[in-house]
Computed example of a mutant assay.
Amino acid sequence: MENLFDIELTMRLLGLDFVQNALLAAALLGLVAGALGPLIVMRRMAFAVHGTAELAFTGAAAALLLGLVFEGMAVEYGAIAGAVVAALLLGILGGKSSERDSVIGVVLAFGLGVGVLLLWLYPGRAHTQLGLLIGQVVSIDRSNLAVYAVSTVAVLLVLALVYRPLLFASADPVVAAARGVPVAWLTPLFAVLVGIATALGVQTVGMLLVLALLVTPAAAACRVTSSPTRAMVLAIIFAEVAVLGGIVLSLAPGVPISAFVTAISFAIYLVCRLVEYLRGRVRVEHATL
Rank of each mutant, 00 (worst) to 15 (best):
I80V: 14
T262R: 04
C272L: 06
L13E: 09
C222G: 01
L130G: 00
L244D: 05
V210E: 04
I134K: 06
V147T: 08
S170T: 07
I7P: 00
G105Y: 02
S227M: 12
E76F: 15
Y269Q: 01
A48C: 13
L161G: 02
V137L: 03
M207S: 14
G72P: 04
L31N: 05
F57R: 03
L119W: 02
A83H: 04
L186S: 04
A146F: 12
V261T: 14
V69C: 00
I140R: 01
N144Y: 10
S170N: 05
A61Q: 02
V155F: 03
F190I: 12
P38S: 01
L118A: 04
L189V: 05
A86W: 06
A81C: 09
A149D: 07
V41L: 12
V275R: 13
G51F: 08
A74L: 05
G78T: 13
V150G: 11
A56P: 09
C222N: 13
G195R: 03
M73C: 02
G195S: 07
N21H: 15
T152V: 10
A287C: 03
E76I: 11
L159A: 05
A239Q: 04
M45I: 13
V284K: 14
V155D: 01
D141F: 05
P173I: 12
Y122E: 11
G245E: 07
P256F: 01
V158I: 15
L117Q: 08
L249F: 08
L167P: 05
E54G: 08
